[in-house]
Every structure is written in structure tokens, then in C-alpha cells.
Simulated scan of single mutants.
Amino acid sequence: MLAFIKSGKPFGQIIADVCAIDFQKRGLPHTHILIWLHSNFKCRTPEDVDSIVSAEIPDKFTDPKFYEIVSRFMMHGPCGLANLKSQCMNEGICSKKFPKKFKTQTVFDDNGFVYYRRRDLKDNFVIKNGIQLNNRYVVPYNRELLLRYNAHINIEICCQSMLIKYLFKYISKGSNRCRVVVEKDRADEIHTYMNCRFICPYEAVWRLLEFPIHSRSPPIERLQIHLPLHQNVVYSGNETLPSVLQKPGIKKTMLTEWFARNRIDHEARQLYYSEFPHKYIWDPGKKEWIPRSKGFSLGRLTYVHPASGELYFLRLLLNHVRGALSFDYLKNVSGVVHPTFQLACKTLGLLGDDKEWEDVFCEAMATATSPQIRNLFVSVVLFCDVADPEVLFSKF
């Protein structure tokens, strides 16, 4: 299915995708797929949505075959008052929020959430368990995928960042687990337990036959960021400190070898750190960057919280300086080597002038008490991008 989706026929040009196979304790495996459309094919109007997603029952007289597929695979319920014992019911309410409200046309709310067209058509319904189900019970679908695969395929358009975070979390949630508790003494507050992985028969067969479990495109290279001599070092518990320090390549990291590659390769100096995986491949065995002969990869710098201090400002510089040769090179602005990465960022104009934080305190002074203002100052310095905390403190 993923190959057909990436062909562009159902939705248009696909620029990225993530796919994961999920196994439930009962039933056959199913897949979750996230796709990103090219900007030319993004859904910006209700007409764009209606062209690829529908939430209505097709006409059973003009399109009987498709009506049969939708009736069989894409109707939710019956639930609610019609069937209080349905699996989706939770405290008398459908957990999937069915039945939906009728909509004469597809609309976007203020947050970009899509409400699909569900017209109130009296003569268009499906009989399921002796109950009439109308468009309020239709699970959104794509006509071309249903006709091709004749199966339950739920299609949703996602326009909210919070939903995207949830979907990523759901796809990468990991395997099912079960806990076995062994009690030797009922009076003991600390129980010995085993945290076991649960593998159902379907997943066992899937893995024995070596079917794919997960895929993503394009490939992503996670780039390390660290301050000088602050990189992570992996070692076993029985190793001594001298033996760890004597390991070959212990001082080599993605970042330090990016500096080294830039010193000997003129073409490499034309790239930002994040652009490097597009032209070079990281060899974890040799710990060096080598020129790429085929394919490509997207580089993504590890996230750093603004309250992380110098590490945050180092990351900021790596996004704005090409072909750096060393950590001091990043601090060098117009021939002056600054003592900190923060001062280098400030000189380059990458930090604001703190006016927005000054406005925050001006507003707070009208109603807040002195302890509240002090707490506000600490929060702003810890969690916000303040260019000069000392000046801000002196002013207020």
C-alpha cells in the first residue's frame, strides 16, 4: 500500500512518510502511515479536502459496488443509545466521538482542524444490526484506496502540531508489555517483578517471515552537539578510567570530525553542519565523514533547551556558520574571538534586544507583588532567550 501511496495517485506528490506495523493482542496486524504532501498538493481549501477524503455514504443505485465496500468496512457502530454495550462506549459516551455532527460542507476551525462534509441525506443510509446508520457514522476514507484494497482504511487530514506530536508518539510507542509480580512476603512493600515483552502469535509469524515492521523516508541523520570535551563516552562497568581514555578515537565525534573535514575539504566548507549528511556519510566504525556516492540524508541537530546555556548558543551558531574549523572559529566574529558562544551570537545579531522581556515586566509591575516579579524574572532567565540577564535585572 505504501508504494501505491508514494506513487502519487491517491493524494499527489509525497515528500516524506513514516510507517509502522501495529499488533494488537487480538486480530490481524494493521499499519499506521503518516505522509507529508508537497506544497503544491497540500489541502488549503474545503474543495482540496473533498477531492481526496470523504465521510459520506455513496449512492447505492449509481455506485453499488462502492456502496457495498463503504457499508462493510467504513461504518462505525452502531453505538450510543442504540447499543450501550458497544466496545467503543466509555461511561455512556462513544470514545471515538460518534455520531458526528452533520455538515453541509467541509470547514476548518480556528486551529486548522478539519470537519468533513456530512450532509443530511434522508434516503442514503446503511442497515447494520437492524439499525439505520447515516453519514454521521461514516469513518473518513479515500475512494481510490478503498476500491483498490477493499479493506478498512481510515484517512485523516492533520493540520495541528499537537496532533502531529501525538501521531509520532503513537507510531513510535514501542511493543506491548506485561508485568509478572512475584510475591515472597506479602508484608514486603517492594515486590520483585519481571517486565516482559508481549508478542502475540501474529507478530511472531510476521517477524519469523521477516516482513517489514517500520519504515521512513527520507532518511534522517541525528547530529551530535556538545561543548568542547563534553561529549558522551560509552564504556562498560568493569573498565578502568585509563583504559577508557586510551581507546582509539575517544575524542572523535560527529562535530569534531566535521571541523576536521572542513580543514581538508574545500567543498565541505560550503555546507552548514545540518547540510553535511546530504553530501557526506558518517562512518561510526572509523568515526569520520566520507563523501557520499549515492542517495541522500537529512541532517537534524539534537534539540537543546534555551535554558541549557552555552550549549544552546553553540547550536544557534552551528545553524548560521558554514564550514567551521573549530570551536574557536565559531566564536570568531570579524576577527575577534569572543570568550563565550553567547557573546558571539549577540555580536552576529542572532539574539534579540530583550525588549519583549522588558514589556513583560512593565505589564507585571502594575499588578504583581515584589516576590511575584522576582519569580517571574527567574522563570524568564531559565526558560527564555534573554540576551543580557544582568541588564534586565538592573533595569527592574
Rank of each mutant, 00 (worst) to 15 (best):
Met1Gln: 02
Met1Asn: 14
Leu2Val: 12
Leu2Gln: 13
Ser7Cys: 02
Gly8Phe: 05
Ala16Gln: 07
Ala16Ser: 10
Val18His: 05
Leu34Asn: 11
Thr45Phe: 03
Asp63Gly: 13
Asp63Thr: 11
Ser71Thr: 13
Phe73Cys: 02
Gly77Ala: 01
Gly77His: 10
Lys96Pro: 06
Pro99Ile: 15
Lys101Thr: 11
Gln105Gly: 00
Asp110Glu: 15
Tyr115Asn: 04
Val126Asp: 01
Val126Tyr: 08
Val126Phe: 14
Asn129Glu: 12
Arg136Trp: 02
Val139Glu: 07
Pro140Arg: 04
Leu146Asn: 00
Leu146Ser: 03
Leu147Val: 14
Arg148Tyr: 12
Asn154Gly: 00
Glu156Tyr: 00
Tyr170Arg: 08
Ser175Val: 12
Asp185Arg: 02
Asp188Tyr: 11
Asn195Val: 07
Leu208Thr: 04
Phe211His: 15
Ile213Val: 12
Ser215Lys: 11
Pro218Gly: 03
Pro219Tyr: 11
Ile220Lys: 08
Ile225Asp: 03
Pro228Phe: 06
Ser243Lys: 01
Gly249Phe: 08
Ile250Gln: 02
Trp258Arg: 01
Arg263Val: 12
His266Arg: 07
Leu271Phe: 07
Phe276Asp: 01
Trp289Ser: 10
Ile290Val: 07
Arg292Trp: 04
Thr302Arg: 10
Ser308Met: 10
Phe313Arg: 05
Leu316Ile: 03
Asn319Gly: 11
Ser326Asp: 08
Asp328Gly: 14
Asn332Lys: 10
Phe341Pro: 06
Leu343Pro: 00
Glu356Phe: 03
Ala368Glu: 11
Thr369Trp: 10
Asp388Arg: 13
Val391Thr: 13
Val391Gly: 04
Ser394Lys: 07
